[in-house]
């Protein structure tokens, strides 16, 4: 099975921790463990993760060059893991990574919602 990795969205992690005193770091990783045999964390991760560049409404402002440039670090981190599939639980991150992966020559990267991963694992 191809290697997968997981991206912590800012709002579920770092910002949730700041505002509500609890960041959702362990729960998605537990789900990843249940669904995948072969996945690795990005570096840096959890509280210290880097934003994908799609947050804060930047997908709608029209400043696309800036947004694509913003995503360079995230794409480097994903590339460094060698993962072929990226799992994340955020609509903005999902939209951003899919939109910029071609620019960073990572067309083959599969981007999935966390719940999509769960649904894919169901056997009917």
């Amino acid at each position: 099975m191809d290697l997968a990795t997981y991206h912590d969205p800012c709002n579920y992690g770092r910002k949730a921790e700041k505002w509500f005193g609890y960041g959702y770091f362990n729960e998605p990783r537990w789900i990843m463990d249940q669904c995948l045999e072969n996945w690795v964390d990005l570096h840096p991760n959890r509280l210290h993760q880097t934003c994908c560049g799609g947050g804060g409404g930047t997908l709608t402002t029209g400043y696309n060059d800036e947004r694509i440039f913003y995503g360079r670090r995230k794409m480097d981190q994903i590339r460094a893991t060698g993962a072929r599939m990226l799992i994340l639980p955020c609509h903005s991150c999902h939209g951003q990574i899919n939109a910029i992966k071609k620019t960073y020559e990572m067309d083959d990267l599969v981007v999935k919602y966390l719940w999509e991963l769960v649904a894919d694992c169901l056997i009917f």
């Binding site: 800012c10 770092r14 910002k15 934003c51 560049g53 804060g56 800036e66 913003y70």
Partner: peptide, 10 residues
């Protein structure tokens, strides 16, 4: 507007 308010700074 080019900032995503990701919170790394704070």
């Amino acid at each position: 507007w080019i900032c995503t308010m990701c919170g790394k700074c704070e």
